[in-house]
Design a protein around this nucleic acid. Structure first.
Lengths: 108, 108
DNA sequence: CTACCAATTGCAGACTTTAGCAATCGTTGA
DNA sequence: TCAACGATTGCTAAAGTCTGCAATTGGTAG
């Protein structure tokens, strides 16, 4: 292995650390989507979306399929959905703890 | 909820997107560690480690326990280990696909 | 061929993150 | 009280990331 695993992991997570990229991956978790579809759901500039899709492509997380002038994106690994699921469950835990803390401060 | 979930997720992943923070979380996945112990394992400047620990604290992923002049860190959620596990498994998938691609290029 | 649409690329400026150094805080032991 | 140690914070220069705009590619239709 050329690079230590923890560095590859950090890069993987860095790839996931952007709201548009998260939304894309969540949409692709459901099913394949064309760029035009992603664009309609997410509502950012086409150029911005392309940039973020390029990041996901470089990381090897998504694959493309051309159909006429449309490009369809899909996940390369179903485990990405699993990652999203675990992340959500961590968040609900962490956020509820933070809410408890706030409540404790509020209640004398 | 004040902020959409996908943004909170992106921030969670951003928090994980740093090699030192990954190493810390992997060490804490095994058991609680004192800062001095983390320092010995990871081998960065104390100030740098403190910075990264502060990031993890702010994100609510780790908790501290003081014992004399030493500070012990632990995970707030065991699911973080799960996240690391899934990430590793995605990486082995993605990396092996990239290696196959290289092989295909090499083989005529 | 020409015009058009979908998608991508290149680039400049604003913004964010990081590393390293010096300074600080809190605890322990002389 | 003072020095020493573990841990943290503040600060700044350097590196990296993001946004929006303009330009470009490739495919489709008139």
């Amino acid at each position: 292995m050329s690079r230590p695993l923890y560095q590859a992991k950090a890069e993987l997570f860095k790839t996931l650390g952007h709201p548009v990229r998260i939304r894309v991956l969540e949409l692709l978790s459901v099913r394949e989507h064309a760029v035009s579809g992603l664009l309609a759901e997410i509502g950012v500039e086409p150029a911005s979306l392309s940039q973020q899709l390029a990041v996901l492509r470089r990381a090897g997380l998504v694959a493309t399929r051309k159909e006429g002038s449309a490009v369809h994106y899909s996940l390369t690994s179903p485990q990405v959905s699993e990652l999203m699921r675990v992340a959500r469950s961590i968040l609900t835990g962490v956020l509820s703890e933070q809410i408890e803390l706030l409540d404790d401060l509020r209640a004398p």
